[in-house]
Computed example of a mutant assay.
Amino acid sequence: MKRNIFNQYITASDFKGLFVSEMLWNNPTGATQLPEINIDNTTFHIEQIAERKGFQILHCHVEQIPSSAICKKIDHKIRKNAENYICIFILPETLHHLWIAPVKKVEKRNVVLIEYDSLDKAAFLFEKIESLSFSLDDNLTILDIIEKVQSAFLINSEKITKDFYAGFKKEHSNFAKFITGIDDHIDEKENKNKQWYASVMLNRLLFCYFIQKKEFLDGDVNYLRHKLEWTRDQEGEDRFFNKFYKGFLVNLFHDGLNTPKHNHEFEKIYGRIPYLNGGMFDVHQIEREYANLDIADEAFISLFDFFDKWHWHLDDRMTASGRDINPDVLGYIFE
């Protein structure tokens, strides 16, 4: 299938046409409407739009894309009528769709998600379409079809963690190169305090990436990136002269995330910031001991480029992207 054809079906939310006309699934036989599913005061009307050897393709129009937790509850109820399925949730008049499919790994059933809200973000799904398609002479069993779908949706969480950690270690080494004012006469790799402070900063920023994706930092899911760009725009004589670290980030950590109340002047620059009473954003021992401590903007540009390659979630959702960072990964990195 050509990408432009795929895009046309996605734009029109015509998943019946996509599966039956292009991917050669069969039209459903018999009743297509599944029994209503009621979860947390929301009713889901799920309809079968295609099938192959009993494996069902379902869709459901929703007023709000369901969360990972809701999807697990839906799966628990839907399996009475559709043990093996792909269900596509559609937010009408938008490109916001969510595909879910149950997968089994070591006898445990999980629900894997693929979510997108633009054609660019749907590119990952397009890469999987061929493995979900058939030819006219295919004579596969239901077990063959289950294997095809699970191969497309299954992820390896251990590999994701190892891949992220490998990249994280490289960023740690790179970040330390841009730190100045900590025993600069000592070779960088032997400078234990500089390496220690690189860990302190990366752990803080790693945590901030999680909370910004939940819109806890002034409602902006790209808060750190946008503020880095803003401070660089403000540099110059009689302007926001300091760099991102000294001019913005230190105050965000110590006077924002580590302080219960913020005045109007603070909020004009930083926006609405939560108070996190956990010690992570206290003034650190190294920050007390090294008055000339500074970090060049380039350190943050590189680090944010790395972080932005991943998908950040505060729940334990599984997606087929292979790029998902959740609290389990966060805990591993902190260890």
Rank of each mutant, 00 (worst) to 15 (best):
G236C: 09
K214W: 07
E215C: 06
F216W: 14
Y197D: 00
R232A: 07
E190Y: 08
V250Q: 01
N251V: 08
E188M: 08
N222Q: 10
W196S: 13
V200E: 03
T231W: 07
F207K: 00
Q234W: 09
R225V: 14
S199Y: 06
E235M: 14
N193V: 10
F240Y: 11
E237W: 15
E171Y: 02
K177A: 12
I182A: 02
I179R: 05
M201V: 11
D220F: 09
T231Y: 03
N203K: 10
G247E: 05
L205A: 08
H254K: 12
Q212H: 05
G247H: 01
N174H: 04
F240L: 06
V250F: 01
D220H: 09
D183A: 11
N251T: 14
F253R: 09
I211G: 01
H185Y: 06
D184F: 05
I182D: 00
F216I: 04
L217Q: 05
E188H: 08
A176G: 04
F175I: 01
F240T: 14
I182H: 13
E171W: 01
R239A: 12
L205G: 11
D184M: 04
D220R: 10
F253C: 05
H254P: 05
N242D: 15
Y209T: 15
F253G: 01
K189R: 11
F175P: 12
N191W: 00
E215H: 12
I182Y: 07
I186P: 12
N191V: 01
L249F: 14
L206P: 07
F240A: 12
H185R: 14
L224C: 04
C208D: 03
L228T: 12
F168Q: 00
N191E: 01
L224R: 05
L224P: 06
G181S: 08
I179C: 00
K243F: 13
A198F: 00
E190R: 13
L228E: 02
F168W: 13
R239K: 11
Q212T: 04
E215T: 12
E171L: 13
H226A: 04
F178G: 00
G219T: 14
E237S: 13
Y209L: 04
F241T: 14
N174T: 09
H172M: 06
K243M: 06
N193M: 06
R225T: 13
F207L: 08
F168S: 02
D187G: 07
F210S: 02
D218C: 01
L252C: 06
C208M: 13
Q195S: 11
L205T: 08
